[in-house]
Amino acid sequence: MMQRQQTGALATGIVRFSQEGHWDQDVHHLLRHARREAVVAVSNPTHSRDHLRLGQVVVDDLLAAGKQVRLLYSPDYLELRDRRPLLRHSSQGAQIRVTDNDFHNVLIIDRTVAVLWSGAGADHPYAYLVREPALLRALHQFALLSWQSGHGLAGHLDTADVEITPTARAVLNTLNLGLIDEAAARRLGMSLRSYRRHIAELMIRLEVRSRFQIGVRAAQLGLLDDTPHPVASP
């Protein structure tokens, strides 16, 4: 587990530990024990591939368990990442924001424990485990304010990032045509329930809250076809 470098610091609720060895597994072991929520803010990541891979797995697990997950990233970090896991996390319910504001790498679990760590290129790498209540409140407040000031993930994606199925694209086009749900479902040869489910999934994928916003965002990303979708046979 975590190798403390300052054993006396435990009494203050702040422990420094080494990023060498298995610190990735240690951090994600903490994350897996989240009971209600996790806030993950990454501005300058480490070079560890295990850190990224484990992070994706743990976030998947938390979302599957119904936990609230907020993810905050810097634009630079976003450039380094495969967008497909991000889109999957968004579709599963993770709340993802991107901000240009300066912030530290931090993980906060249930507002009871936090981990701060340095990123790649740090002259003096550090990682701190924090349990001190006053500092935890300050870290959580700062992380939440940074998250709220950010922008949705969709604003940082392009057409290549937003992979939608042919069916979802056809649904987009019926929305663009202004068809009522019943007519659109008949046009596409699907049930009304399936049609509305596709619309709900598109809202999640494009990070919007209304059908009008779906159309605006789809147009921005070039996801709408000029050629009308053929009418399904009765």
Rank of each mutant, 00 (worst) to 15 (best):
H140R: 09
Y128P: 01
G121K: 15
S90R: 14
L135E: 15
L86C: 05
T99G: 13
P125M: 01
L86N: 07
I108F: 06
H89I: 12
R137P: 00
H124R: 06
A94V: 05
H140K: 07
A122K: 09
S91M: 11
G93R: 13
A122S: 06
L144R: 09
L136C: 09
P133R: 02
E132I: 05
R137S: 03
A127L: 01
H151M: 12
Q92W: 07
L86Y: 03
A114V: 01
D110H: 03
A120N: 11
L78Y: 06
L78C: 12
G121N: 15
H140A: 07
L86A: 08
R81V: 08
L144A: 04
L86D: 02
D100T: 14
A114Q: 02
R137D: 08
S118C: 07
A94E: 06
S146E: 05
E132D: 12
G93S: 02
S90L: 14
Q148D: 12
H124N: 04
L107N: 05
S91A: 09
G119F: 02
D100Q: 12
T99V: 13
F142H: 14
L87I: 12
A134K: 09
E79F: 13
S146G: 06
I109P: 03
G119P: 02
F142M: 10
D82G: 03
T99E: 10
N105G: 04
F103A: 11
S91Q: 09
Q141D: 11
H124V: 03
D100R: 12
D82S: 15
H89C: 11
S118W: 08
G121I: 14
R97T: 05
G119K: 02
Q148H: 14
R137W: 08
G93Q: 03
E79R: 15
G150W: 02
A127Y: 03
L107K: 01
Q95G: 05
L107T: 00
N101E: 15
S149T: 05
D102R: 07
A122H: 11
S90T: 14
L144P: 00
R83L: 04
S149V: 04
S90E: 13
Y126G: 00
A134F: 10
Q141F: 09
S118L: 02
R137N: 03
D110C: 05
L144M: 08
L86K: 03
Q92C: 07
R131H: 13
E132C: 08
G121W: 15
Q92R: 11
P125Y: 13
L145E: 11
P133G: 02
S149D: 06
T112R: 11
N105I: 08
L129G: 02
Y126D: 01
A122P: 03
I96G: 09
T112V: 15
Q92F: 04
N101G: 15
Q141T: 06
L129P: 03
E79W: 14
R111W: 12
T112P: 00
W117R: 00
A120V: 13
H151K: 14
L86T: 05
P85Y: 00
L139D: 01
Q95N: 08
E132Q: 14
V130P: 02
S91C: 08
R111T: 00
Q95P: 00
H124Q: 08
